[in-house]
Design a protein around this nucleic acid. Sequence first.
DNA 1: ACCTGAACACCGTTCAAGT
DNA 2: ACCTGAACACCGTTCAAGT
Lengths: 244, 244
Amino acid sequence: VNDVEEQTSTPARSRGPARSLSLEQIVDVALALVDAEGADALSVRRVAGVLGVRPNTLYTYLAGRAALEQAVVERVLAEADPRLLDGDASQWRARITTYALALRRRLRAHPGVAALVMRAPMDGAAALAVGEGMLGAFADAGLATEDAARATWVVIVQVLGSVALDVADTPDGRPGPERAWVASRRARMRGLDAADWPLTVAATDDVARWVTKAQFAWGLDAVLTGLTSGAQHGALGDSEEQGA
Amino acid sequence: VNDVEEQTSTPARSRGPARSLSLEQIVDVALALVDAEGADALSVRRVAGVLGVRPNTLYTYLAGRAALEQAVVERVLAEADPRLLDGDASQWRARITTYALALRRRLRAHPGVAALVMRAPMDGAAALAVGEGMLGAFADAGLATEDAARATWVVIVQVLGSVALDVADTPDGRPGPERAWVASRRARMRGLDAADWPLTVAATDDVARWVTKAQFAWGLDAVLTGLTSGAQHGALGDSEEQGA
DNA sequence: ACCTGAACACCGTTCAAGT
DNA sequence: ACCTGAACACCGTTCAAGT
């Protein structure tokens, strides 16, 4: 509704037919659109409209809508510097924590993108950089290759899953100040019958705080402790599983 | 393309104007549609078409498309029996593990729904039942209310996040047999340059296995260990955070 | 190589109207 | 209360054509 100007007149470049566009430019516009109006507002046609170009023009640069979404996700993943995962071996825990908090912060700055992040495979360059950095941190924590790889995925799941579920909890996909958000969650739970959900009602205040930074940090810390405790009970094994 | 019949003729009920439909029926059709053609095929118009009714008719039963998605998610969440979380106090760990594996199984049986699960707030009756059961299991593990609540959310995030990211990794949103899937992930990583991503390349086989049941069980086990180790380092505190 | 014209087969949602 | 007719303002994608 604002901020993103619909430029129906002339393209951004000179006048020649060649290279009036670039993929980078397209992603710029797509991200601005998602930031301004949310994930649902992202469309090939809207982006083309802003760029002053026909919708089908974008297919020269992208395979389609899914590729556009993936490119936007990659862009935001890259906003959190994966070099935060590098550093002193003894500081492996702080490195992961600092990076995770930075990534959470960037995703919440683009809440529409947080919704998109669980819809595309984590195989772009930015995603690879995250994995590479985290593998290094867990190696410094003393984990062997296989465990470091498994631990890396657990942390990625926890960080991205947490942010995505948080954002999904906001009615309009736009997280507000933490205090107000928690209050609204508490209010939503007011109607719950203690006879039906005794434990949930008893824990209302704590459940309301599930979307906080404190919860995120506490959870990540617990996860890191478990990943490096070396005391896996793991009864459930490697049995094959069929799809569907 | 199959399985879901487009019934353009008469409604399912007799002939009177009243109650030719029900919310349950609508969700039945929506779920069948998602199962047959994936999350993207779900639309108000398609569902109405199958039911032999005009699109706007559904607005008598639902607030809109988002509510339809949420109802489908609830339906599938309810497929995994939350009573699996009940049982002997000493068995708290097995209860959580068994339930988590059951939920993962149900979600993978409806892979389109796994994509939807991160887009709606976890506040329906089925979601409440999951929280309530998990709170009980963590209470039995000896956690105080606040820690049990926090732990509950960590596990929910891990389970749902894991399934959603797994499904997002499949090109067509349809997880096949595990062995083939892992092989295709390994093939995808073949092109990676060891100079750019040394650790990732060294861990190729392990990274390819991120989507397996073994990874899921291993990760959940580590998370449960961390959540109940009682050794939180938690340096990062409760500081307030502004939105955006 | 890059962009357009035109079309195809769709969307969600609203509103006034009928029974 | 439940459903329809009709409309509004959109979608993604394809294909042949132009430069």
